[in-house]
Computed example of a mutant assay.
Amino acid sequence: MQEKLSSFSIKHWSDDDRPREKLVQKGQASLSDAELIAILIGSGNKTDSAVELSKKILASVNNNLTELGKLSIAQLMQFKGIGEAKAVSIAAALEIGRRRRGEVGGKITKINGSKDVFELLHPILGELPHEEFWIIYLNNSNKVVHATQQSKGGITGTLVDVRLVLKRALELGAVSLVLAHNHPSGTLRPSTADKQITAKLKTASQALDIQVLDHVIITEKGYFSFADENML
């Protein structure tokens, strides 16, 4: 039995079927998603090689890496041959990829419109399973002074502390703000609570000569802009 199990370990495959060697010889771009995941898990199960098992895992999410990144450790462990260590390796690798996209978005230093807000924050917010509310603080040239998470878990007037938002704006010398939050459900329609907190922050900011330029709702596949829709 042990001999049968070990035959599905990558080190026992023929040279043409070994993704680690393929990566070294031809570069990581030459590997399929399944081959990359196979390197992470190292071995398959009694009936599937690591690549075959990886293909099954990918098939369960329609070969969508974004959806794969949303699977919990427990969900990954439902696949025969995936224990906690392998599940953690997959989750960690996908999280690194998500953070790398965030670094790319972080190169945006000036907000010229809603698209810039989306490109800046989508790598951070687009795939989250929960809601987060962010504030982007801008100077008089619309350059990003600071961007920070204001609240996590929902959007209501009690979770977004207007006083803290404006206190931080004064500390940073910001002259305008952009509000942003995500909708994990994928809907791009602003809720009543979204409209209320936008109005509340806009009114409070005006008293300090600070302008709210936009409120952008971000989903995995798109965004909604209050400014673009003339709702500010």
Rank of each mutant, 00 (worst) to 15 (best):
T47N: 12
E229R: 13
L179K: 01
Q150N: 07
S60W: 06
N139A: 04
E171Q: 15
I10G: 06
K200N: 11
T148G: 08
S6Q: 11
K11Y: 14
A204P: 03
G42L: 10
L208I: 02
K110Q: 15
F224E: 05
D17N: 10
K221L: 10
Q75K: 13
T109I: 13
T47H: 13
G42F: 06
K115C: 00
T192V: 14
E95C: 05
L31G: 07
V178I: 08
R20A: 06
F79I: 10
K70D: 07
S185V: 07
R98I: 12
R101D: 06
T198R: 12
R99K: 15
N62I: 04
S89L: 15
V24G: 08
K143L: 01
K200T: 11
A87Q: 10
L128Y: 04
D15V: 15
A59P: 10
P19A: 09
Q211M: 00
A87E: 08
S6A: 13
A147E: 08
G44M: 04
K152M: 13
E119Y: 08
L68C: 04
L36D: 07
P123R: 04
I218L: 01
H183I: 06
E103S: 10
L76R: 09
F133T: 09
T187Y: 02
I155N: 07
D16H: 13
A74L: 09
S9Q: 13
E131I: 14
V117H: 06
A91V: 14
L177E: 00
Y137E: 04
G69T: 13
I155S: 01
F133I: 11
G113C: 00
F8Q: 09
A29Y: 03
Q206N: 14
A34L: 04
S30L: 01
K4I: 14
S49W: 03
K70W: 00
P19V: 08
A38T: 11
N230R: 14
E21M: 05
K167C: 07
V175G: 01
I111K: 07
I210R: 03
H183M: 04
T109E: 13
N230I: 14
N140G: 04
L94H: 04
V175W: 00
L128C: 10
G113S: 01
V178Y: 00
S89D: 08
L213Y: 01
N140S: 12
S14T: 15
F8C: 10
L36A: 10
I210P: 08
A174F: 10
Q206L: 08
